Simulated scan of single mutants.
Amino acid sequence: MNSSKSVLITGCSSGIGHHCAHALLGAGYRVIAAARKEKDVERLKEEGFEALQLDLDRSDSIDRAVERLHALTDGKLYAVFNNAAYGQPGAVEDLSREVLRRQFETNLFGTHELTVKLLPMMIKAKEGRIVQNSSVLGFAAMRYRGAYNASKFALEGLSDTLRLELEGTGVHVSIIEPGPIRSRFRANALKKFLENIDIEESRLSNLYEKKLKQLRSSEDAPFTLGPEAVAQALLHALESPSPKRRYRVTFPTHLFYWLKKILPDSMMDWMLRKVE
């Protein structure tokens, strides 16, 4: 049992975060589940979690969450699973500076700020785990996903650097790279697409009609797995004495990892253009 080990999970309202919170609770961890909306925080409490409100776009919310974590854990936090993120669809040419900034505020800047404010607790304890939920899109760029691609590429680079800098502290950094996972990711992306992309005025308006149909579809993409696949990787990252630097989850992630190693860029571009 791991009842003495406290783990913060962000983005627990649904999908991967919600499932992983339950999986870790079942494995004996003390789970502090974070969500952006108060109604989701209350629901998580009803499910038996210690829960707190956390909006990664706001430094004051991050500060309140860290203060609350200190009080809940007596300054002893074993791990954080940085799961909270969203995907902003749209061609790069249709992304305004503000829309791109908002994507980075949540997926990178907020995650970074939270992580560095939690680090002192782990360094003091001489043990800890930072687990970043990235994506196959954190190393393989695909069309009409530029904002999300960029945020996850950046997260991986920052995390690799952090791992090197934490050598000898007892704190490990791992990156999980899921491909298609059953969650609300597509529904949330559809909302951002409609909010932030001027579909009718775009040079790609005809293509966007196809993208809208895909985002509205209830059918799983090929090779989609359930969130339990991510939970399995997370548990290994938390419990192994030598956690992996990267956990590749789903067939597409493994496939594109090896294709990037063996194919020239021109051929890789051809392959990636085939992916919708």
Rank of each mutant, 00 (worst) to 15 (best):
residue 169 T to A: 02
residue 170 G to I: 06
residue 170 G to T: 07
residue 170 G to Q: 02
residue 170 G to A: 01
residue 170 G to W: 01
residue 171 V to L: 01
residue 171 V to G: 00
residue 171 V to E: 00
residue 171 V to S: 02
residue 171 V to C: 01
residue 171 V to K: 00
residue 171 V to M: 01
residue 172 H to T: 09
residue 172 H to L: 01
residue 172 H to P: 02
residue 172 H to V: 02
residue 172 H to Y: 12
residue 173 V to G: 03
residue 173 V to Y: 02
residue 173 V to K: 00
residue 174 S to E: 04
residue 174 S to M: 04
residue 174 S to Y: 01
residue 175 I to P: 03
residue 175 I to H: 02
residue 175 I to Y: 05
residue 175 I to T: 14
residue 176 I to F: 03
residue 176 I to T: 07
residue 176 I to L: 13
residue 176 I to A: 09
residue 176 I to G: 04
residue 176 I to C: 06
residue 177 E to L: 02
residue 177 E to C: 10
residue 178 P to V: 11
residue 178 P to R: 12
residue 178 P to L: 11
residue 179 G to K: 10
residue 179 G to D: 09
residue 179 G to S: 11
residue 180 P to R: 07
residue 180 P to A: 12
residue 180 P to N: 10
residue 180 P to E: 05
residue 181 I to C: 09
residue 181 I to Q: 10
residue 181 I to L: 10
residue 181 I to F: 13
residue 182 R to Y: 06
residue 182 R to K: 13
residue 182 R to D: 05
residue 183 S to G: 03
residue 183 S to R: 07
residue 183 S to N: 06
residue 184 R to G: 02
residue 185 F to M: 14
residue 185 F to E: 02
residue 185 F to T: 03
residue 185 F to G: 04
residue 185 F to L: 15
residue 185 F to V: 12
residue 185 F to A: 13
residue 185 F to H: 08
residue 185 F to S: 07
residue 186 R to T: 04
residue 186 R to I: 09
residue 186 R to V: 08
residue 186 R to Y: 03
residue 187 A to I: 02
residue 187 A to R: 11
residue 187 A to K: 13
residue 188 N to M: 10
residue 188 N to T: 13
residue 188 N to E: 12
residue 189 A to Y: 10
residue 189 A to K: 08
residue 189 A to T: 05
residue 190 L to H: 14
residue 190 L to F: 14
residue 190 L to Y: 14
residue 190 L to T: 03
residue 190 L to V: 03
residue 190 L to S: 04
residue 191 K to F: 04
residue 191 K to Q: 13
residue 191 K to H: 13
residue 191 K to E: 15
residue 191 K to W: 01
residue 192 K to E: 15
residue 192 K to T: 04
residue 193 F to T: 06
residue 193 F to W: 12
residue 193 F to E: 12
residue 193 F to P: 01
residue 194 L to E: 15
residue 194 L to R: 15
residue 194 L to P: 00
residue 195 E to G: 01
residue 195 E to I: 02
residue 195 E to Y: 07
residue 196 N to C: 08
residue 196 N to I: 01
residue 196 N to G: 03
residue 196 N to A: 08
residue 196 N to R: 15
residue 197 I to N: 09
residue 197 I to G: 00
residue 197 I to A: 11
residue 197 I to S: 06
residue 197 I to K: 14
residue 198 D to Y: 10
residue 198 D to T: 13
residue 198 D to M: 09
residue 198 D to G: 05
residue 199 I to S: 09
residue 199 I to P: 03
residue 199 I to Q: 13
residue 200 E to P: 00
residue 200 E to W: 04
residue 201 E to H: 14
residue 201 E to I: 05
